[in-house]
């Protein structure tokens, strides 16, 4: 092979490598953005809870639409349902299934509500007691009108328990069905449930 041919082949190899690198960079950055978008592309944050009020809205921008399709496919619009996701406790530490958390709050201003625990793959935990959420029907309010429940690997015995088996990340999703017009207009006015870690993690 002549030096000229060798030089040409080298240029082609570099060009092809750069081109493939560009494709990988484009795809990788897209995946990174849509997986991170719910946390980066947040329109409202109340305590540990973050929500994107453009979810389910035909006017949503390109990135919001992609992020919702990947992370919360088939979301409803704000008038029908508002969604808030917590990935951290109130101290700002990422939620872990091996840790125990006490969640307390007042029923949100909505016709009906629920809080569901999901593993970091956004699917339900394999709960041995079949309890995946606390909601407006199952929540028992104390004398102050507050609900409370516990998430974690072991049943605390003193409150409603949402099992989170395994050693992995997790999120809590708060759904508000038919939120009041006042809350729709001002989502940040929601009195957010607190998420407090209890004891050491398993």
């Amino acid at each position: 092979m002549t030096a000229r041919h060798s030089s040409k082949a080298r240029r082609w190899a570099i060009g092809t490598a750069l081109y493939l690198g560009a494709v990988a960079l484009g795809l990788g950055s897209a995946v990174w953005v849509v997986k991170k978008a719910p946390w980066l592309n947040t329109t409202v944050q109340v305590g540990s809870w973050k929500g994107n009020m453009l979810a389910g809205n035909p006017d949503a921008d390109l990135y919001t639409r992609a992020a919702i399709a990947v992370n919360a496919l088939l979301a409803l619009n704000r008038e029908e349902t508002m969604y808030f996701v917590a990935a951290q406790d109130e101290a700002g530490k990422p939620l872990r299934s091996s840790c125990t958390y006490r969640v307390e709050g007042v029923p949100p201003q909505a016709r009906w509500w629920s809080i569901t625990a999901y593993a970091d793959d956004l699917f339900l935990f394999d709960a041995p007691n079949g309890q995946y959420s606390l909601n407006g029907t199952t929540a028992k309010l104390d004398t102050k009108g507050q609900f409370s429940f516990t998430t974690g690997p072991k049943d605390p015995g003193d409150t409603f328990w949402l099992p989170t088996p395994g050693q992995r990340g997790m999120v809590l999703t708060l759904r508000l069905y038919n939120p009041t017009p006042a809350l729709q207009a001002s989502p940040a006015s929601m009195v957010a449930p607190s998420i407090k870690p209890l004891g050491d993690c398993a």
């Binding site: 950055s29 897209a30 953005v33």
Partner: peptide, 18 residues
């Protein structure tokens, strides 16, 4: 070329995902 290609692939992927 790398920058333009990466940008186009990125936007195409974001559009195509849903």
């Amino acid at each position: 070329t790398l920058s333009v290609t990466a940008l186009l692939v990125h936007l195409l992927a974001i559009w195509a995902a849903p």
